[in-house]
């Protein structure tokens, strides 16, 4: 839930999604859901010469389960807020 919320705060920001098939796609984060499926607009594949497969693709839906990394814009991430939220969530979990 925490990570889902983080991604929601990053909508309309530029991110780079690296997939488990080694494809890296940069684009504007349009939406995310509870499975961390991601929709990107205005996409660009890294090293397009080697990967022309997505030349004509303008926006895409990426299945959360195939994501390895997402590179985030550091200026849009409040790390103190994240750490506090993580402590709160883990405390709530242990109480159960």
């Amino acid at each position: 839930m925490l990570i889902f919320s983080v991604f929601k705060t990053l909508t309309d920001q530029q991110v780079t999604v690296e997939l488990k098939n080694d494809l890296s796609i940069t684009g504007v984060l349009k939406s995310v859901d509870q499975f961390l499926n991601i929709r990107l607009d205005n996409i660009k594949v890294l090293d397009e010469a080697r990967h022309p497969h997505m030349m004509a693709v303008k926006n895409c839906f990426i299945r959360g389960s195939v994501v390895r990394y997402v590179q985030l814009p550091p200026e849009s991430v409040d790390t103190q807020l994240l750490e506090d939220a993580t402590r709160r969530e883990s405390a709530a979990q242990t109480k159960r």
Binding site: L19, N21, I25, I43, M54, M55, A56, V57, K58, N59, C60, F61, I62, R63, V66
Partner: peptide
């Protein structure tokens, strides 16, 4: 499915 992309038909 890994990815679903909308094709720009003119470009494609």
């Amino acid at each position: 499915i890994v990815l679903i992309g909308e094709l720009d038909e003119a470009v494609d």
